[in-house]
Amino acid sequence: MPDRLPTHIGPFALGTFGDGSRVFPGLVVGPRVRDLSDLAPSVRAVVEDWEALFPRLADLAQETADAWHALADLRVLAPIEPGQVLQSGANYRKHVVDLVAAEKESVHGATPEEARADAERMMDERIRGGVPYVFLGSPRAICGPYDDVLLPALGEQHDWELELALVIGRTGKHIPAEDAMSYVAAYTICNDLTTRDQLYRPDLKAIGTDWFTAKNADTFLPTGPFLVPAAFVGNPTEDADVRITLRHNGVVRQDESTKDMIFDIPRLIAYVSTTTTLRPGDLLLTGSPAGNGAHWGVFLKPGDVMEAEITGLGHQRNTVRSGQ
Rank of each mutant, 00 (worst) to 15 (best):
A270V: 11
G30T: 07
M261P: 10
G83D: 04
G314K: 08
G281W: 12
A52P: 08
T276D: 08
D49C: 05
L27G: 07
A115V: 07
E309N: 09
N318H: 04
V272Q: 12
V305W: 03
W68S: 07
S138R: 11
P222T: 06
S257D: 15
H108A: 14
P31H: 03
P152G: 09
R140A: 15
P79Q: 04
L154M: 02
D98G: 14
L164G: 11
D59Q: 02
T311K: 04
V242Q: 00
P152D: 08
R44P: 11
H8D: 05
K301E: 12
W68T: 00
K215P: 10
R321W: 10
N216W: 08
F135W: 13
V47W: 01
E309P: 04
P132S: 12
S182W: 04
I207K: 09
F226S: 06
R267I: 13
L60S: 05
D197A: 02
D38I: 00
T7V: 05
L246I: 03
L246T: 05
K173Y: 12
H295D: 12
E238N: 08
V228L: 06
I175D: 07
G208V: 09
E156P: 00
H95K: 12
P6H: 08
F212P: 00
R116I: 05
D179I: 07
L313K: 13
R196L: 13
T194V: 12
I262H: 08
A61S: 11
R253T: 11
Q198V: 05
G137V: 02
R128Q: 12
A90K: 11
H248P: 06
T223M: 15
